[in-house]
Design a protein around this nucleic acid. Sequence first.
DNA 1: CTATTTACGTCAACTATATTGACATAAATC
DNA 2: GATTTATGTCAATATAGTTGACGTAAATAG
Lengths: 187, 187
Amino acid sequence: MDELVARKISEPPSVAAWRNAAAEAAAAAGDGDALELVELFFFAYRDFVGDADRLLENYGFGRAHHRVLHFVNRRPGLTIAALLDILRITKQSLNRVLKQLLEAGFVEARAGVVDRRQRLLYPTPKGAALARDLAALQSARFLKVMDELPPAARGAASKFLFAMIDSGERERVRAHLAYAKAAGAAT
Amino acid sequence: MDELVARKISEPPSVAAWRNAAAEAAAAAGDGDALELVELFFFAYRDFVGDADRLLENYGFGRAHHRVLHFVNRRPGLTIAALLDILRITKQSLNRVLKQLLEAGFVEARAGVVDRRQRLLYPTPKGAALARDLAALQSARFLKVMDELPPAARGAASKFLFAMIDSGERERVRAHLAYAKAAGAAT
DNA sequence: CTATTTACGTCAACTATATTGACATAAATC
DNA sequence: GATTTATGTCAATATAGTTGACGTAAATAG
């Protein structure tokens, strides 16, 4: 273990190059403010997921189950491949969690009609109910925040969050939101 | 495993009660918008931590090391207890990660002067440099976001994130930020 | 001064979530 | 008919967390 650490702590040359670039970029402006935002983002996310975690415990599920159930509910008929693409995990990792959701009757899979190799995922009524409860908890936090915020700041939240996403990812996220909205899979 | 799931999926009575309350609260307003915010928050956080993850890989460290190094750098002289309080993990979990940071020379511990049982944690120069690089990456994302955002929306980000934190936690977070700022542990 | 509490470390077993790599199968497509 | 695609599965491993039990040195209360 000492060896493992010792072998890896020396700084590779490739890092040194853009280390300076990044450091300079941030040092250029008042970094203190940005650092505060970094920490606020950390604390905000911690509490945000905490809500759902507590509810999930009652079902013996974890965050991984939540994510799967959420996206299946949001886009009924989702394929495995599409889900893997959203979650960015391996199929082996997805399978463990998905299998539990299927066996417990929160999600069901039907063979694709156009391509029968595909497994189209749908929430069961029970699954949809849990997904709705989880979404309600997290939505409630946002709604409360909007209420606390000065009106002028309310519209800024979604713009801010969207801008925080990798620019190369934004189009995909936009497409996902549009698809979900069109599918009418609200709450 | 089937039994394990079967045993836990029946909904406990305590849940049913506030399930409705939460569902109603969210259903009361246009939930669709809030759902979008939920997903944007998820994607934004994913990309936000991704930056640091890639840099950490070069050192054989993970997110857990990052969090420890970050807060030690931000508040030099931090005690174990204070760190546990911020991270909300067990001492056993902290210890594994902290030990690696100590052995690899990124953090050092000195006995407390007023209370010699305490171990005061400080970043080494090497640790401070890595912390600065990591912070620079994440700060850079925020700075870029601020640049992309309409000027009117810029001030809203920190208000929004702060409002997303559990109300019972805000005072502690405020205290942490004030302490860090006063300690002058910038970047 | 003794007793207790506090701050921290450590051993062990276990869980959840992820990974890589290899191989299997059925359906679609060339 | 051969190949590619969508998915499932077995096995080994890593990381980050948990609970529980026990140890030790220093501070503090009586």
